[in-house]
């Protein structure tokens, strides 16, 4: 255990864990922290996962963040978008994505805020969320845990499926949909409560359950064995430095706070 690490590094390690025990799935981390995390997972506990170079190829060597050229890259396979859909509709993928809104049922929104016909704020659109969420496992990364993200009611537009029974048409096969973890800047959660209720399974150093609850628009459960989120090990930090030599991770969370919160 190391005590000298940043919150971004703690989050990278927590994010990497979403791919633990997932086998030979395509790991897709959207954003800098999830992308470093997928590389860390591959180079530590989950060598079986498949990752891409960020373009169209599978590689066994995670691409370094901020690389300036393609020199020295080697490829094990080919993964253009047409094959991404072939693969993901077959379920062999786990994506770590960053929704704008998440509700208590795990339904998530990245499409727009307000009315779909004339949105108050158009965002990315549904993109891959509907197909991903009904076909394979997903986890969420939320670097700004608050009530604007974890909304009180349903999300404005349900882009990815959740555990709200009323949202499902009768006769639809729900077996392939699962949401594994939510990693935020405050804690790690899962859907292990009664009827898939969201529970806090670990709190980041110096964060209380009450603080997490205050920043969440719906009631949370604290898991019985909820402890502190594991600190990065020296080996993990070394891999992270190798994957992100220019320290792009330091610019991902405002003011790049330390991993162990300092007393105010």
């Amino acid at each position: 255990m190391s005590s000298n690490f940043t919150l971004a590094e703690l989050l990278i390690c927590a994010c990497a864990d979403v791919w633990k025990d997932e086998g030979e799935v395509l790991a897709t981390g959207i954003g800098i922290i999830p992308r470093i995390a997928q590389g860390l997972a591959k180079l530590s506990h989950s060598p079986g996962i498949m990752i891409t170079d960020g373009e169209a190829y599978l590689t066994e060597e995670p691409v370094v963040i901020g690389a300036k050229n393609h020199e020295g890259r080697t490829y094990g396979g080919y993964m253009p978008y047409s094959r991404v859909f072939d693969l993901l509709w077959n379920g062999k993928r786990h994506a770590l994505v960053g929704p704008v809104q998440i509700d208590r049922w795990g339904q998530a929104n990245i499409a727009c805020i307000g009315d779909f016909a004339k949105p108050k704020r158009q965002m990315l659109g549904m993109r891959g969320f509907p197909g991903n969420s009904i076909n394979h496992g997903n986890s969420f990364f939320v670097p700004n845990h608050g009530t604007r993200v974890f909304v009180e009611d349903q999300v404005d537009v349900v882009c990815s499926v959740g555990y709200r029974d009323e949202s499902w048409e009768a006769g639809v096969k729900r077996d392939y949909a699962s949401i594994k973890h939510i990693v935020t800047n405050l804690c790690v959660m899962d859907f292990g409560g009664p009827d898939h209720a969201i529970r806090v399974i670990s709190l980041h150093p110096g964060v209380s359950f009450e603080e997490v609850q205050q920043n969440t628009g719906f009631p949370l459960i604290q898991a019985e064995d909820c402890g502190e989120t594991a600190h990065p090990t020296a080996e993990q930090l070394e891999i992270i430095r190798k994957l992100d030599p220019r320290d792009v991770r330091s610019k991902q969370i405002k003011d790049n706070p330390p991993g162990i919160r300092q007393a105010a």
Binding site: F116, F129, P130, S133, I134, V161, W168, Y176
Partner: peptide
């Protein structure tokens, strides 16, 4: 046929699409 879109608001905002 596909499963994509089911369980979301897709059918609500695209009522011309059927199951």
């Amino acid at each position: 046929p596909t499963r994509s879109g089911l369980g979301t608001d897709f059918l609500k905002v695209s009522p011309e699409v059927k199951t």
